[in-house]
Design a protein around this nucleic acid. Structure first.
Lengths: 335, 335
DNA sequence: GTGAAAGCGCTAACAG
DNA sequence: CTGTTAGCGCTTTCAC
């Protein structure tokens, strides 16, 4: 029933291998036979069977995308959807397909990765989260399967990854605030042992130092990525210090900080991170750093596909994606 | 390098076909040889090659998911993410995989569908939007490829689909408002030629009639799915009628309606639809109908997979998914 | 430049 | 119950 390469071959009066060469656009095929073959393909409405090709040349042209399924992550944050689009964007360009799976937790993710790779359904894997001592990375490394990570892993040796330049992102935000006249600027971050937190904190410190502003421990709070810790961080800072501006490492933290300011009727400039959907719906509308998730996805796909196609001559193993401060009401005022 | 069925066969001292039967869990295999084979598989860490299986039995165990990439749709609305999870949930249960593609527009979607189906990468397709005179459906029908659509198509003959019971959803919402004492209830809907709009309107009408409340054209507005049309619809209703409550067919419409009420300082009960993320962040928090998108995805996958596996004995060709009124501040008050 | 033949790894008759 | 034998549809040496 389905038309195969043989049908095309006999109609065009050539051998199957010739047709195959035409499909692969082999250089050593006369223009004449090329034409003949194309004609036959059109007449028969021939379309190569991807599965058969995959079996023969041991490559599926498919990438596996592993998504976490934590409620908060997935819903409040357009992050993953944007990443998916970015990936899709580059993949389509290169004629790659994407299979996605949701993992209930880290172990479940590992299980899915094993399924995907053992069955050879995919040529490579894209990881969308990094954890401490990441088991997914461990597993992929062990079986030596191509993969790329969105977010900077602890141990980057021999790993493809993309991430924002968190140092610069925060550096620029703080600088911007300084330009606006702020001198007493606080920092409220998530877990202090995370790279993101550390890098963003460094950017904060550097910006202050560069402007000759004293960096004080009392202006630096870290905790969890929760509204609550944003709230308490802000509260305690308000009590002892008199910040005129506060930068945070996540919108959710910023939301808590806003709440604290409102309670104390303090008018303080606040900046969030990740530019989540809700930032625009705060009172005041929250200025936030857009991390360009779509670009993260795009370059993750690029890194992986380039490797798969051996186009990685330049040896690039990671990309730093730029960020954008989206300025809204919360940082409108000059001091 | 990779271990194949042959390796297992020779280690277990059986033929490849026997191993194949063990993999497929064929009933007519003695427990003894089953054990032998399993042992060999474990020792060799054998994993069947999915591609080879697909080629041999002409089935890929993967579904193609076609997503629209309209900004608004994708971002503001957790709809698609939820659908993806639902699909994934059922698919994983049945050991199916999902490939997704984004279509820039209808034609682009058709192109992707053709790619997916012509290359035989997928066994079936899941459509997440329905348009008037839908080209995707047309194409799929023509080539007679299994598919399911989320949303009720115009012509449902021989088509698998899932949708909410829009009639009942709205019927119950209006009833609920009536219980609360409302008698002057307005309706603001999207495009009047769409099924959703019509069905929801019918539910609205029926509920009023059942309670012996007069249905007046002046209480019914339709337009586009925009904040603007929600706003103007509300404005004009406020001018001529004195509604105490208004139901809408989309949160975005409700947002506009809220705005209009605020401007005129009218305290009117308002209900949205789709329970989007932002509904909770309105002032007042918007009551909205949750359409259970995850369930829509789940049952879409079920419908399609059941068909593919010929488990569709009962001949079910669609599911109606229940909805849930999420009550928030906007309908708190009794009249 | 093009064809013949072997094979990718697995499944599915058909025997026995 | 199990083995033998052909393929599934395409690619890829290796000749010519």
């Amino acid at each position: 029933m389905p038309v195969t390469i043989k049908d095309v071959a006999s109609l065009a009066n050539v051998s199957p291998s010739t047709v195959s060469r035409v499909i692969a656009n082999s250089p050593k095929i006369s223009d004449n036979t090329k034409k003949k073959v194309y004609k036959a393909m059109n007449e028969l409405k021939y379309h190569p069977n991807a599965i058969a090709r995959s079996l023969a040349n041991r490559t599926t042209k498919t990438l596996g995308l592993v998504l976490p399924s934590t409620e908060e992550d997935i819903f409040v944050n357009p992050f993953f959807v944007q990443i998916m689009r970015g990936i899709s964007h580059y993949a389509q360009k290169k004629n790659y397909y994407i299979m996605y799976t949701y993992g209930k937790d880290e172990l479940d993710e590992v299980k899915h990765i094993e399924n995907l790779t053992n069955s050879r359904r995919v040529d490579g894997i894209i990881l969308t989260t990094v954890r401490e001592n990441d088991k997914c990375i461990g597993c992929l490394r062990e079986i030596d399967y191509p993969f790329v990570v969105i977010g900077r892993p602890e141990d980057i040796e021999n790993i493809l990854w993309v991430d924002n330049d968190n140092f610069h992102a925060m550096y620029r935000v703080v600088n911007h605030l300084i330009q606006k006249g702020h001198r007493r600027i606080g920092f409220i971050g998530g877990e202090s042992n995370l790279y993101v937190t550390q890098n963003r904190l460094e950017g904060y410190v550097k910006a202050l130092e560069n402007s000759g502003i004293n960096v004080s421990k009392d202006f630096i709070k870290t905790g969890e990525f929760t509204e609550e810790d944003g709230y308490t961080g802000m509260k305690s800072m308000l009590k002892s210090q008199q910040p005129t501006a506060v930068v945070t490492t996540d919108d959710i933290i910023a939301f808590g900080a806003i709440k604290a300011c409102k309670e104390d009727s303090k008018d303080i400039a606040i900046v969030g991170f990740n530019n989540t959907l809700l930032s625009e719906y705060q009172q005041p509308k929250l200025s936030s750093v857009d991390i360009n998730a779509e670009k993260l996805g795009y370059f993750a796909a690029k890194l992986l596909i380039d490797k798969l196609e051996n186009n990685n001559k330049n040896g690039i193993s990671n990309y730093m994606i730029d960020t954008n401060l989206i300025e809204r009401e919360s940082t409108k005022l000059k001091v």
